[in-house]
């Protein structure tokens, strides 16, 4: 399955958001996840199924003025 993750193409075997995040190996506590322009709360990551061509944005808060 081919996804757009943070603007880049990424092939994955993951079928849910949670699997994708685990596959990439991200710490989860500060992660903000957008799936097809909808923000998905952490408790819904496991239930959110991925489909080919889905857009996923993985964001976090950083320092800024």
């Amino acid at each position: 399955m081919l996804l757009r993750v943070n603007g880049d193409s990424q092939t994955t075997a993951a079928t849910t958001l949670e699997e994708l995040i685990q596959e990439i190996g991200l710490k989860t506590e500060s992660l903000v996840v957008e799936h097809n322009e909808h923000i998905i709360r952490q408790e819904l990551w496991a239930k959110t199924r991925l489909q080919d061509q889905d857009q996923v944005e993985l964001l976090s808060f950083v320092g800024g003025g």
Binding site: N6, L26, S30, L58, L59, S60, G64, G65
Partner: peptide, 19 residues
């Protein structure tokens, strides 16, 4: 205090500013 939002850097561990 201000914070910014960015796409995570998948190559390195991102510090969680909120903590």
């Amino acid at each position: 205090i201000t914070v910014a939002l960015r796409r995570i850097d998948m190559q390195s561990v991102t510090d969680n500013i909120l903590q």
